[in-house]
Design a protein around this nucleic acid. Structure first.
Length: 306
DNA sequence: AAGACACACAACCGCGAATAA
DNA sequence: ATTATTCGCGGTTGTGTGTCT
């Protein structure tokens, strides 16, 4: 037998329930403006409200807080929300934390009422648009001059993967590459023509000014969050994110504390990465390596636990 | 015009985690 | 270390409004 739940129907019948009135809102807002929020249990008594603390907290967090963003959810927010839900599942507060000004309740309602249906209709199939940009693939000769410590997207893995998607590069007398489809080469590699042509049709254009880590994270999280991610970690491959004190951020989910060190390396598979995600976010049942493999074909990523 | 239905949003409930005593 | 208390989360319900028949 635990304690009876606070703010339940069994509690003090004299407390107001249901919709909040304007005057109640005013009292709560003014009280918090001068006393800060928190101490919800005792707040109603202190503020002179006939509400339970739980109700006050909910009203403040979901409605009265000054930084709440009003108005329709934008297409950019839609897309980010879908990406986050794909990764995190129904972890609404975590998702809402990545959508500034939106509340978990709002996100949850929005998802349940309309976004989930739109997802089912296939509106948000992964587009990989950030990774696949216009053809701009550097010569493989650059691989030899790039030091490992300065590893960037301009090294071989990106190039080879991109070529696989686009057909085969043809080098002319001036050492310029073009990407007409090379059926013979694909046959030699065991790829049939239909497959090769289909792949070649996909946009395979890479922003070579960014590391594949950046590209991966942008595509995963959307540009929306990328600036902040970069600001925090820089996103250099091989970087060690020291989380030994358990307070540093997870690279994908910046406000989430972890107690593990994470090392990003350039030459591995997605499986260990996926394992880590699933370990950290066990409720993300739908998360699997195939989703990330789509990204990781452009480079390779592993996260090694110490 | 009126009832049925769908939708959007606010609010409630119970549980587990976190924290305090 | 244990127990009591508070907080925060996610699922669910209630209610107001708009649309359709």
């Amino acid at each position: 037998m635990g304690r009876s739940p606070s703010c339940s129907k069994y509690e003090d019948q004299s407390l107001n329930r249901g919709a909040w009135t304007a005057s109640e809102d005013k009292i709560l807002s003014e009280y918090i403006a001068t006393h800060e929020d928190g101490g919800w249990r005792s707040l109603p008594k202190r503020a002179g409200l006939k509400r339970c603390g739980k109700s006050c907290r909910l009203r403040w967090l979901n409605y009265l807080r000054p930084d709440i963003k009003r108005g329709n959810i934008s297409p950019e927010e839609d897309e980010l929300l879908v990406r986050l839900h794909r990764l995190l599942g129904n972890r609404w507060s975590l998702i809402a934390g990545r959508l500034p000004g939106r509340t978990d309740n709002e996100i949850k309602n929005y998802w349940n009422i309309q976004l989930s249906k739109r997802v089912q209709m296939g509106e948000f199939e992964p587009k990989f648009q950030n990774i696949f940009k216009r053809r701009e693939i550097l010569s493989s000769s650059k691989k030899d001059v790039v030091e490992k410590d300065n590893y960037t997207s301009q090294t071989l893995p990106l190039k080879t993967r991109a070529v696989r998607y686009s057909g085969r590069p043809v080098v002319d007398g001036n050492n310029n590459e073009s990407y007409s489809y090379d059926h013979e080469q694909d046959t030699h590699d065991g790829i049939n023509q239909e497959e090769g042509l289909k792949a070649a049709d996909q946009a395979v254009e890479i922003d070579t000014s960014k590391s594949w880590c950046q590209l991966l994270l942008e595509d995963c999280m959307g540009n929306y969050q990328h600036d902040r991610l970069e600001e925090i970690h820089g996103f250099q491959p091989n970087s060690v994110l020291n989380t030994s004190n358990g307070t540093d951020d997870h690279p994908l989910f910046p406000s989430t504390s972890l107690s593990q060190s994470i090392i990003l390396q350039e030459n591995s598979s997605s499986s260990s990465y996926c394992n880590l995600i699933n370990q950290d976010f066990p409720h993300s049942k739908d998360f699997n390596s195939s989703y990330f493999d789509s990204f990781l074909d452009l480079g390779e990523l592993s996260i090694l636990l110490p």
